[in-house]
């Protein structure tokens, strides 16, 4: 069975009295260890698809299995648990906690996992930061790091809980081309280490990094 198995995913938003369909029956399959890009212009529904695949939102209709678990029916706390265990998010704007050191930032998902002491969480976070070449930055705050470094901290945070997949949203959108290339190299390494990556982007050069692309337009998969 595929790692991501989404079938007939539909999402309808109610805006006042009008129903606005954002997704109209999308099928997505991603295998374990794949590196997939989801592309499409803004307003195409790719963000909505990302939210559903990332278990932040539930589909109005359709079936979604992630790593063998049926997600379509889950809400609230159960969904939060799945997010914590199976999904590692990387955002365009890094979204690190400004008042925490980077090691505390990376350790944060483990806090919500439960069962780890603070010392244990920080130990794992530091090991991961070392692995991504940020060992000398441990103990610093995000605003003391460059954009590329911050995004790599975000990657470390997404990896710390050993999720089933990384869900990446425009990872180079806020970076210059040099830092962007550096971050993309990091993703390549992470993928080579056996991780599944689903990346949402509208940048064709970035999408070219992936093994294959899924193109979304008007809430449907375009060829």
């Amino acid at each position: 069975m595929s790692l991501i198995n989404a079938h007939g995913i539909t999402k309808v938003y109610r805006l006042g009295r009008v129903d606005v369909p954002a997704l109209r029956g999308v099928d997505v399959q991603v295998e374990q260890g794949e590196y997939v890009a989801i592309t499409g212009p803004s307003g195409s529904g790719k963000s909505t698809l990302m939210h559903i695949l990332g278990c932040l939102d539930s589909p109005s209709d359709g079936e979604y299995h992630l790593d063998g678990a049926d997600i379509s029916a889950l809400r609230g706390r159960a969904l939060a648990r799945i997010r914590n265990q199976k999904v590692g998010f990387v955002f365009q704007t890094f979204n690190l906690m400004p008042r925490m050191t980077i090691d505390e930032n990376v350790a944060l998902p483990l806090q919500y996992r439960g069962g780890f002491s603070r010392r244990e969480r920080l130990k794992r976070a530091r090991a991961l930061l070392e692995r991504l070449g940020l060992g000398d930055r441990i103990g610093h705050r995000p605003d003391e790091l460059s954009g590329g470094e911050r995004q790599r901290v975000a990657v470390a945070r997404s990896l710390v809980g050993e999720p089933a997949m990384l869900l990446v949203d425009e990872p180079t959108g806020n970076l210059d081309s040099k830092a962007g290339a550096e971050v993309l190299r990091t993703f390549r390494e992470v993928h080579n280490a056996g991780n599944t990556i689903v990346m949402v982007t509208h940048d064709m050069h970035v999408a070219a990094e992936a093994q294959r692309s899924i193109h979304i337009a008007d809430g449907k998969i375009a060829a």
Partner: peptide, 16 residues
């Protein structure tokens, strides 16, 4: 709100 969103994405539930 932004921070709450991040924490939610990282797996924080309503209780946390």
């Amino acid at each position: 709100v932004r921070e709450i969103g991040i924490r939610a994405a990282l797996g924080a539930d309503d209780r946390s």
